[in-house]
């Protein structure tokens, strides 16, 4: 059985797709057969970030409607043969997805894959709802600014009350925080919320901090998940995130603050 992981945030532009691509690639690189699904029907982007946009024939909506089977729609990644991409439809809208249809596709994929990463669209409407409904784990991507934190908080409320696990009174979705576009210099200057400020509001298990980095945009434009850029700070940060998700202990990096700060914050955990 696969583990279904939703990458979500509420707010747009915080790095959900970048994160989905990086995490999926990271898991696949470690030998786990992984699929990443673009739930942003109508605003398809994941294929660009993964560099497979010229190989899209069938999409998620086609599979749900029975117009194509899974094997026809899944695109194997050119960098890693354990990674598959299920692109969104660009010509449809979110109403083309149905709860039952998404469940059926995930069920079928579960037979074959170890991890299924669901790249959620922004917002809290149907697309985001369907992306998180079947999740076992949630990566909540948050930028260090107030509106992003508030939206993440809202999304956490939805995860806790409207997901399948909540409705069936199963163990709740495991929630993880991923703080992206973090700029320690601006944090120290008081221009950006610090990790402590964000955690005061969200109090979540921190999976990692991704520093603001030029390498992210470069990687996006090249269609290569940033985690493959092993020299870049963002690439290394994502590699750490994958390791921590898999249960390895890694000290948090890229915070660049006073010594002992992290120890104070995480010493008890």
């Amino acid at each position: 059985m696969a583990r279904v992981v939703v990458v979500t945030s509420g707010k747009g532009g915080v790095g959900k797709t970048t994160t989905s691509a990086a995490i999926a690639m990271g898991l696949a690189k470690r030998g786990y057969k992984t699929a990443v699904i673009d739930f942003d029907v109508g605003l398809r982007n994941l294929d660009l970030i993964m560099g497979c946009e010229r190989r899209v024939v069938y999409d998620f909506v086609n599979v749900i409607n029975g117009e194509a089977n899974l094997n026809q729609a899944l695109i194997r990644d050119k960098n890693c043969n354990q990674l598959y991409i299920l692109p969104a439809s660009q010509t449809r809208d979110k109403d083309a997805l149905s709860l039952e249809g998404v469940g059926r596709v995930l069920e079928e994929m579960s037979q074959d894959f170890k991890y299924i990463i669901c790249d959620s669209p922004a917002g809290i409407e149907k697309g985001a709802y369907l992306a998180m409904y079947y999740a076992d784990d949630a990566l909540v991507v948050t930028n260090p600014e107030v509106s992003s934190v508030r939206d993440s908080d809202r999304m956490l409320g939805i995860l806790a009350s409207k997901s399948r696990r909540a409705e069936l009174a199963m163990d709740p979705i495991k929630e993880y925080l991923l703080l992206t576009r973090y700029d320690p210099v601006r944090v120290e200057a008081g221009e950006m919320l610090g990790l402590e400020d964000v955690q005061e509001i969200l109090s979540l298990h921190l999976l990692g901090i991704i520093p603001e980095s030029k390498s992210v945009l470069t990687a996006s434009n090249a269609g290569i998940p940033v985690i493959l850029d092993e020299k870049s700070d963002a690439g290394q940060a994502y590699a750490d995130v994958v390791a921590r998700y898999l249960g390895e202990k890694k000290p948090h990096r890229f915070i660049e603050s006073k010594k002992g700060f992290l120890r104070k914050l995480f010493g008890g955990k």
Partner: peptide, 8 residues
């Protein structure tokens, strides 16, 4: 016992 999140 669980946090009451924004919107709940």
């Amino acid at each position: 016992t669980q946090p009451v999140r924004s919107g709940q």
